[in-house]
């Protein structure tokens, strides 16, 4: 049994707890023992991306403390995992001790599909999900963590799931955290282009590794009155 610590992420915690539960089921099915360090809150990305590095550092400090001894940290979010991996070491580059810890934690932090495929070497989790599904590769998972084949491989192994290609899949959906509020019209235009491709794909369900992008996409689908549903990858992988 592989011990992992779940970093559930703030959005999943408050808005999409069933995604967190699905992630736990999937990890357990893959042979992990999952711990949930209850002192965790948020990785600080929302503050960091908006230029508030002091505030981000406070949250990052908390993360480093909470997960200091975790053997592996798994998050159902490419974006949060990327925050820890890419930016934490830079955030603490001027404080050597914390910098070392940040690098060490960065090397132990994974996005869910990444952990399943790259670390555990699993693609088939015995899931069944009878629907036509398309996959939107979230930017930070795709370009930050280099996740291309991992989520797709997991989806291909799901029974009764018909995977259809998303046109211009690698285009950003336009979420970008506070960008979506600050540059609301622009974010809306980028979203609209993404929704067009999702609807054109013929999928009943659009999935991704991040609830942040999915929150934005499902909000757009709902506003449009679309019948396409947005679901996190973990929910699909937990299906049986």
């Amino acid at each position: 049994m592989k011990p992992v610590a779940l970093f559930v992420t703030c959005l999943v915690d408050q808005l999409y707890p069933h995604v967190g539960e699905a992630a736990v089921r999937v990890l357990e099915r893959a042979g992990c023992t999952v711990a949930f360090p209850e002192e965790q809150t948020c990785c600080g990305q929302a503050a960091f991306n908006n230029g508030f590095q002091e505030e981000a550092r406070v949250l990052a400090r908390r993360f480093l403390d909470v997960f200091a001894h975790a053997p592996a940290i798994v998050a159902p979010s490419g974006s949060c995992a990327d925050m820890v991996r890419e930016w934490y070491p830079r955030l603490f580059r001027d404080t050597p001790a914390l910098g070392d810890l940040a690098r060490s934690i960065a090397s132990r932090t994974y996005e869910l599909s990444e952990y399943l495929v790259r670390v555990l070497g699993t693609t088939d989790l015995g899931a069944r999900f009878p629907a036509t599904v398309t996959y939107h590769p979230s930017c930070h998972g795709l370009r930050g963590l280099g996740l291309r084949e991992e989520p797709l491989g997991l989806l291909r192994a799901v029974r009764d799931l018909r995977l259809v290609e998303l046109p211009d899949a690698e285009q950003c959906c336009g979420f970008g955290g506070f960008f979506s509020i600050k540059f609301a019209a622009l974010s809306g235009a980028m979203l609209s282009a993404k929704l067009d491709t999702i609807e054109a794909s013929g999928a009943e369900v659009v999935t991704a590794t991040d609830v942040s992008c999915l929150m934005h996409i499902s909000g757009g689908l709902s506003r449009r009155g679309s019948r396409v549903r947005a679901m996190h990858l973990a929910e699909i992988l937990a299906g049986s």
Partner: peptide, 11 residues
């Protein structure tokens, strides 16, 4: 700005 273009999620 959020709801200008999208439905908001529920807690």
């Amino acid at each position: 700005g959020w709801t200008a273009h999208r439905t908001a999620p529920l807690l």
